[in-house]
Write a protein that binds this DNA or RNA. Structure first.
Length: 229
DNA sequence: GCGACAG
DNA sequence: ATCTTGTCGC
């Protein structure tokens, strides 16, 4: 049984302490097996209420064909506080993850990983709790500074916080805002960038993220499953 | 004291 | 994150 305080802290002070512990457990190199199933992870709040809907979209790699999906809904108590996002979204995400037939080989999470004030964004938190390889792909910056990103697709510049490189600002497409990539768990930054590019085709965001977002927000297509219990 | 601030 | 029509550009 997992330590509940790592998921349900009673106070902000405790939440911050738990983040520091989790950050220490993050594995920063490529310690994982072959990747055949890549999953996109996202949480939406249809209607703007307090009911969160987590969605996991598993794609085959490298074809990126949709393989399996899982969705879970739950009342969310923890408010959105910059820097504490994972305590708000992870509970329902873990529920969705449990509904998959088997664990994915790699997770691409919608949000920061190591590029966090305490190096514990939602991608690190989820990766450490499940011990699954994970990468954070965020649409905007939380912390860190960086130089302009070259226009070429695939170009990236380091995201820095003081003297440390905490992530990569990556141009997934020409003419669109770059995305913020950082390691979550068991993946190096250089490879994380490679994985994100390998999962990105014709849009700004990886296909994994897009598929998960469609399910979480209710914009998903029709056909087959996608629900659960 | 004044901004900044993943989703 | 969510609320929202039209509109500018390729």
């Amino acid at each position: 049984m997992t330590d509940r305080s790592l998921l349900q802290p009673r106070t902000v002070t405790e939440a911050i302490a738990r983040q520091r512990e989790i950050a220490r457990r993050v594995v920063c190199d490529d310690a994982h097996g072959p990747v055949r199933r890549v999953a996109g992870v996202d949480v939406g709040f249809p209607g703007g209420g307090t009911k969160g809907r987590a969605a996991i979209a598993v794609l085959e790699f490298p074809s990126l064909a949709l393989s399996e999906t899982a969705v879970a809904e739950a009342e969310v108590n923890f408010p959105y506080v910059p820097g504490l996002l994972s305590f708000r979204e992870l509970p329902v995400v873990l529920q969705a993850l449990e509904r998959l037939s088997s664990p994915p080989d790699l997770l691409l999470v919608d949000g920061q990983g190591w590029a966090h004030p305490r190096r514990c964004g939602i991608a690190c938190h989820l990766g450490v709790l499940t011990d699954l390889p994970s990468i954070g792909v965020a649409k905007s910056r939380l912390v860190g500074t960086h130089d302009p990103v070259p226009q070429e697709r695939g170009a990236w510049v380091p995201l820095r916080d003081g003297d440390e490189i905490i992530g990569a600002v990556l141009r997934t497409r020409v003419g669109v805002h770059p995305v913020y990539v950082s390691i979550g768990h068991r993946v190096s930054l250089a490879r994380a960038v490679d994985w994100v590019m390998a999962c990105t085709t014709r849009y700004r965001l990886p296909e994994t993220t897009r598929a998960a977002h469609a399910l979480a927000s209710g914009t998903a297509k029709k056909r087959g499953a996608g629900r659960g219990a």
